[in-house]
Amino acid sequence: MGSSQSNETLEFLEKDGYYYWADFEKTPFAEGVSRYAYKGTFHGQGPSRGDRCVVKVFKQTYAKHITEWTTDIAASKRAQELAEQWNVYKSTTRPPRFRIPVIAKMDKLATFYALGFIPISQTSVIGVNEYVAIEDFITGDYEKFNSNSGWVNRNGHLFASAFSHYTWHKTNGRELVCDLQGVRKGDSYELTDPAVHSLNRLYGMTDLGQLGMDAFFYSHQCNELCYGLPLPAGHVRHAAWFGQRNTSYTFEL
């Protein structure tokens, strides 16, 4: 499984039912508060062979165990479930689709094919027994449409605000999908890394609970795609950190 890139993985089972392995670059092309993102390539016998991918790795100062990724995957899956319901509720020319990552474990000593990665000694970012995530690379101009603290891209993106509003309504005020980011294509919104606010704080470090929902509605301006959706009754709380463009985390508040 040689390659000109720096890091390689063992085989893992993708959502299309085929086994793949991936190689990815030594240097990240992007980073957030808690993670690095690396460009890579799928290899194997399935239809995704040769396609580009993204490998996401927690920074050293953050937990790198399966529980951290489990909530991320749950948020992506929940966002996709609600996107499918939105696509039935509101037939738009660009339906949203969320990328759902595959989780893999770093495993230097594996002697059999399993979910796992081979750590490369020249990088201190990735280590043995850590978990990383792989997802399809989204080509195109990457944009952020809203954040998880009430910031909204007002540059003509009616969809993001209306979709977030819809998810709150559809779940009877128990959840709200936000932090929408990705690429607006001709026939879809291809999205990644959503946040889901929930009353029970089920979705990890970007789930700000009821206060996160308040942040959304504090700045929300209904548009034509919101027609017929109710608003929260009563007073919406405000906090000083509302309206940040960057993703907010529970440990920062």
Rank of each mutant, 00 (worst) to 15 (best):
N155W: 08
Q85S: 08
K108F: 08
I100C: 05
A114S: 14
T111Y: 04
V54S: 04
G127S: 14
T70A: 13
Q60L: 05
H65L: 07
T139M: 03
L158A: 10
R154H: 11
A104V: 15
L115Y: 03
T61F: 02
P47Y: 06
S76A: 15
G46P: 00
D136V: 00
I100H: 04
Y62W: 11
E68K: 06
S91F: 04
T71A: 13
T111K: 09
T123G: 11
S76P: 01
P95W: 02
N146F: 02
N87I: 01
Q122W: 10
I120F: 09
A110N: 09
V57L: 05
N146Q: 04
N153K: 06
E68N: 11
C53S: 01
A74I: 00
W86P: 11
K56I: 04
N148T: 07
K144C: 05
N153V: 04
T139A: 11
E84D: 15
L82C: 05
K77C: 04
K108Y: 11
I138A: 08
V54P: 02
K108C: 05
V102I: 12
K39W: 00
R52I: 00
W151T: 10
T70P: 00
L82N: 06
T61Y: 03
T92E: 13
G140I: 03
E68D: 11
N148K: 04
I103M: 12
K90Q: 15
E68A: 12
P47M: 03
V132I: 15
V55M: 03
K105R: 15
M106F: 06
F159E: 13
G150D: 07
S147V: 12
L115K: 01
N146P: 05
V54K: 02
G116E: 10
E143C: 09
Y142Q: 09
F137K: 01
G150M: 07
G50P: 08
S76N: 09
A63W: 00
A133M: 13
Y113C: 07
A110I: 03
F42N: 10
S149L: 11
A74Q: 11
T67E: 14
A110G: 12
Q45G: 09
K105Q: 13
Y142V: 12
T123F: 03
S91T: 09
D136E: 08
D51H: 10
S124R: 05
I66Y: 02
R99G: 03
N87K: 12
S48T: 03
